[in-house]
Simulated assay, not measured.
Amino acid sequence: MRFAYGETAVILRAPLVAGPYGNEGRDWNAATRTDSPGWGFAPRTPDESTTSDSPSVIVGLTGYGPPDADVLPTDRMEVRGEVYEVEGEVGEWRSPLTGWRPGLEVALRRVYIAEG
């Protein structure tokens, strides 16, 4: 399913490179950028319960995308000019009765990049 008024997100995929101490990490400066049309986004609130006098804090977005979108748990996504990490596995909606695959669900968490 594609949303009639869906948004285009940019999927960022970084290669693995050797780190200074022999471990591997992602080189986000060398990431590929792929446009992915047909997404819908909704705000996410924290999973932990809050008291009635403490406000909810939005921690990211939930993305609803087309079933053929190429998104991995190690990717980042650019949405409305902001960069988010894919948090956890990518969920695929699929009917057990018909096999219909309406789309994907992706939890996104904002990436804060320190300057200086």
Rank of each mutant, 00 (worst) to 15 (best):
Glu92Ile: 13
Ser52Glu: 02
Pro46Trp: 08
Ala14Ser: 11
Pro20Leu: 13
Glu92Asp: 12
Ser52Gln: 06
Leu108His: 02
Gly19Glu: 02
Tyr64His: 09
Leu72Phe: 00
Gly88Lys: 03
Leu16Tyr: 01
Arg13Asn: 06
Leu97Ile: 09
Arg26Lys: 10
Glu82Phe: 14
Pro15Trp: 07
Thr45Tyr: 12
Arg101Asp: 01
Met1Asp: 15
Leu12Tyr: 03
Ile113Thr: 15
Ala18Glu: 11
Thr62Leu: 13
Met1Gln: 10
Val10Leu: 14
Val57Thr: 14
Thr51Met: 03
Leu97Pro: 00
Leu16Glu: 15
Tyr5Lys: 10
Val106Asn: 09
Val83Ser: 07
Glu48Gln: 11
Thr74Pro: 02
Glu85Ser: 11
Thr51Pro: 00
Tyr64Ser: 07
Gly60Thr: 10
Gly38Glu: 14
Thr50Pro: 00
Glu85Ala: 14
Pro73Tyr: 07
Arg13Ser: 08
Pro37Asn: 08
Phe3His: 10
Glu78Thr: 11
Ala69Ser: 13
Ser49Asp: 14
Val106Lys: 05
Ala4Thr: 06
Thr50Glu: 14
Arg109Met: 02
Gly25Val: 04
Pro15Asp: 04
Met77Phe: 07
Arg26Asn: 08
Gly19Met: 05
Leu97Ser: 09
Ala9Asn: 03
Arg94Gly: 03
Ala4Asp: 12
Arg76Asp: 00
Leu61Ser: 05
Asp35Ser: 14
Glu87Ile: 10
Arg80Gln: 10
Ser36Trp: 05
Glu78Val: 10
Ile11Cys: 00
Arg2Trp: 04
Glu78Pro: 06
Leu97Tyr: 10
Val17Leu: 06
Trp93Arg: 15
Pro37Cys: 07
Ser56Leu: 15
Asn29Tyr: 04
Asp47Thr: 14
Arg109Gly: 03
Leu72Trp: 01
Thr50Cys: 10
Gly116Val: 11
Thr45Glu: 15
